[in-house]
Write a protein that binds this DNA or RNA. Structure first.
Length: 271
DNA sequence: ACGAAGCCCTGCAAGC
DNA sequence: TGCTTGCAGGGCTTCG
């Protein structure tokens, strides 16, 4: 399940292998992703040069000279560079072939991912234009989210996971950041003071930066491996630990469902 | 306008 | 052992 740190790590791992290179062809084996992959994709991409690979939220943007290939990994998607002679396996839905003999291979068992072609400024695309600030920039700060929360009665965890409020905070890191800042995930967003939002923002940044730093250590494995970072589990304090003891106070962690998402917290440490 | 629920999908784990 | 069932989750979409 790629969260933002994994998307960021993926972009950093892929970019050096495709930036400046020209696409020779594309192969779409299964176009039934979240939205249909354009049938004309090979025609669109052929002989186009990749200018840069960037990220907006969890969307990956391959900037070409004629437009942008917009990619989302959904829940189970991954991309990696493979040699062109490596036979595709199960769920290898799309290949993008490059002039250096390398292939960018898109794999996605659950097919929640997406691959779209966008002409013009990609940031004005319908999928991107309503996105909130990046969590690791100064635009995401206590004042900002406090302002957004002023008239919102939604649980703070829902606010945090709303991509129109801030992008890239998935379920795992929302749980972890709320625990780190001592805020109850079900607390109404408009019932939290500015100072506590300052702490929450710091916690979100810290947990994401830590994960990116750890994900970075697996960078070299991106070529030829499944690129799956092993960073989590040991560093998670609440996610996946419902019913177990709180690492701070040993109270048993409570687990509830919020908007169909697993929500774990300590009733002692989080208010 | 906001908030909550539904839905897409496959793999895995638990239960019978 | 082999089946069935339930759960996991990003985020767009629909409903209230």
């Amino acid at each position: 399940m790629p969260e933002l740190p994994e998307v960021e790590t993926t972009v950093r791992g892929i970019a050096p292998h495709v930036s400046g290179h020209t696409i020779t062809d594309a192969v779409v084996r299964n176009s039934a992703l979240r939205w249909p992959v354009p049938a004309t994709l090979p025609v669109i991409l052929r002989q186009r040069r990749v200018r840069a690979v960037t990220r907006r939220g969890k969307y990956i943007l391959f900037g070409l000279d004629t437009g942008t290939l917009l990619m989302h990994l959904g829940m189970s998607g991954s991309i990696r560079m493979v040699p062109s002679e490596l036979a595709p396996g199960l769920h290898d839905h799309v290949d993008i072939l490059f002039d250096n003999g390398q292939v960018l291979r898109f794999n996605d068992p659950r097919r929640f991912g997406a691959l779209l072609w966008v002409e013009g400024d990609p940031l004005h695309h319908e999928l991107l234009t309503h996105l909130g600030p990046e969590p690791l920039t100064g635009d995401f700060n206590g004042d900002y989210i406090f302002g957004v929360a002023r008239h919102r009665k939604t649980p703070v965890k829902s606010l945090l996971m709303n991509s129109q409020v801030v992008v890239g905070v998935g379920n795992i890191y929302a749980n972890e950041a709320l625990f780190a800042s001592g805020i109850h995930p079900l607390r109404k967003a408009n019932r939290i003071a500015l100072a506590r939002y300052d702490m929450l923002v710091s916690a979100v940044k810290a947990v994401l930066e830590s994960a990116i730093a750890q994900g970075g250590t697996t960078l070299r494995d991106f070529i030829g491996s499944d690129g799956r970072p092993g960073y989590f589990r040991q560093s998670l304090k609440v996610y996946g630990r419902g019913g177990e003891a709180c690492v701070r106070c040993r109270t048993l962690l409570r687990e509830v469902r919020l908007s169909n998402r697993s929500t774990v917290y300590c009733i002692q440490c989080q208010r």
